[in-house]
Design a protein around this nucleic acid. Sequence first.
DNA 1: AATTTCTCCAACCGCGTTGTG
DNA 2: ACACAACGCGGTTGGAGAAAT
Length: 313
Amino acid sequence: MEGRRPTATPCCSKVGMKRGPWTAEEDEVLASFVRREGEGRWRTLPKRAGLLRCGKSCRLRWVNYLRPSIKRGPITPDEEDLILRLHRLLGNRWALIAGRIPGRTDNEIKNYWNTHLRKKLIKQGIDPRTHNLLPSSIDHGSPAQLVSCHPATDRDSMPQEMGSGSSEAVAIRNDRCGYFHGLNPHHDDVGWQNCDVFTADGDQMPACYGVEDGGKGTDACTDDLFSALFDSFVNEDMFNTNCSQDGENMFSSSSTRNCNVVKEDDSNMSPQVELIDPMDTGLDLEGLLEDAFTSPVDFDGGIPAQCKDHAGK
DNA sequence: AATTTCTCCAACCGCGTTGTG
DNA sequence: ACACAACGCGGTTGGAGAAAT
C-alpha cells in the first residue's frame, strides 16, 4: 500500500528531507545500514547512511516494517485473544502490548484494534475503552453475560479516598473470554469498585477495593485481586498448557515474587486501567506478564529482541 | 462502467520521558 | 538543578484499494 502524501508541516525542521512512502531502494539502504551498525542514534543515522529522511522516519520504518523479526500475515485468533486480554489489562499502551506478541508491532496492533477489535467489541455491546458493557446493552440485554450485579452497599468500609460515586458495582463475565470486570458501566472515572471477582471458571474471589490515582501501593486486598485477575487470564485454553506446568497456578504467589522491575510510564493510563491498574499496586506486572504471555505464544521459538526492547523502555 | 463510500494501514505529528553535559 | 537533545509512544491523517450503489 502507498503511504500518505507529504503534508505541509514537516516532522523534522530540516528542509530538503524526503517524506511520504519509502521506496525499495531506501528500504535497502536503511536495512543494510542498521544491520551493519545496529539500532540507535537515529538522529544521525540518515546522514551516516546517506538517506534524505529524518531520523524519526528512519526509526519508524525500521521498527514497523524492516526489522527482520517482524511477523507477516494476518492476526491469528490466538493473537487477537491475547490483544484483547492485554488491552483489557493495559489499555491503549500499544508498545507494551506489542512487546508481548512476538513479531507484531505496536502500530500494527493499534491499527488492528482500531479497525477490527474495537468494532467487534462494540458489536458485542462492550465498550472497547473500558471493556464494560455499554449502557444500552445493560438495559436491553447483550451477548455478555451478567454474572453478578449488586449495589456497593458496603461502600462504607471502603478506604476514605475512594468512596466517590454512587455507582453500582458489577462483575461481568464475558462468555467467550471469561472477562473479568469490576467496573461500573456508567462511571468510567471512579476508582476501584466494590466487586465480586469471578475467575474464568466461575469461582468467586473475595471482593476487593482499589484506590484512585493517589493510592499507590499494595493494600491488603491486592493479592486477591491479582490472583483473580490473572486467574482470569490464565484460565484460558491457550494459556493453560504452559502457565500451569508445575501443577499450580503460576499467579497464585505472583505478588510475592521478586522479579526485575521495569519502570513503566503510566501517564497515559486509560480509564479502565485506572480502575484495575496493576501498575499502581507496586506489583511487578512486567514480571507477571513475562511469565504469562511470552512462553505460550512463542511463535518463533524464542522471544525476539524487540519484545524486550518494547518492554524495557 | 462510473461514482461514491468504506476500510485498511503506513506514515506523520506532538508530546512526554530519558539521557547527557 | 537546569537545559537541551534524543528517543519512543499514542493519536491521527489521508491515500490506495475494495465494496457498494
